[in-house]
Amino acid sequence: MLLDPTFLAIQFLNGLQLASLLFLLAVGLSVVFGLMGFINLAHGTLYMIGAYIGLSVARSTGSFWLALVAAPVAVALLGMVFHVVLLRHMQAASPMKQVLVTFGLIFVGLDSVRYIWGNYSHGIDLPAVLAGGVSVLGETYPIYRLFIIGLGLAVLAALHWGLERTRLGALVRAGVDDRETAAALGIDVGLAFFAVFCLGCALAGLAGVVAAPVLSVYPGMDMSVLILTLIVVVIGGPGSLKGAALGALVIGMAQTFGQVLVPALASVMIYAVMAAVLLARPGGLVRARHG
């Protein structure tokens, strides 16, 4: 059974779907970290808030598509406010202060969500076009999962284009490469950071609303992805788009095939993979910083 090609193909798609979600979550965190060394532990909170805003929009308008657009925009705005009010003053602070502030924001975010949306779990219904399944090698596979894979690939392509072909992309690349030199050359690293931070927030919000129909919406969903996202960032090598994609792929596959092939080690698989990667390549799979 385990070597049956259909079975393996289905599991591969499952791994790809998880990788796609993890990529959406990790890429913003990774580039922000690479750019400014800024550790945002509240990234999972943005994911949770994205899911809840998506829930409210989908409930009130009846449109999943609207939720898919509104949630990332709303979370990006929220990120913007936080940046202006709080994080702007934290950029130069020691990493440990950033840890404490963003850890505090996890608590604030969780209780705010409980206060606004209550303690109960919710689901988001899919539009007819995405509900149901298609046949993959004779097995039913949910269309929505293929949609998630497609969305992940589309975001990856768009970010790649943006990074290579736009002025902002050039700023970001210069900033990640060598912050000091870039600043000396008159490049506004702070502005690049702000833009990337907001984009990262939007993508976390997008991940939240995309995950909601599969993983549901509940208080505590933030912590369920935080560690996984951090692992993806670190395995891939912080500051790199390619790294985030590669890290997401490695963890998505390790998690999926680990559960199937070595169930006894399912709970430690991703940690073991991370430990192995870090010991073999202490800077992560992709080295972003050259300077």
Binding site: F33, L230, V234, Y271, M274, L278, L279, P282
Partner: peptide, 26 residues
């Protein structure tokens, strides 16, 4: 193992090992 790494990588490998100990005891 852990002291071979620094910074965020040290944070994450200690996290990983801690979670493995937790998984074993669990």
């Amino acid at each position: 193992f852990a002291v071979r790494l620094a910074g965020v990588f040290f944070i994450m490998i200690t996290l990983a090992i801690g979670e493995m100990v937790h998984a074993y005891l669990f």
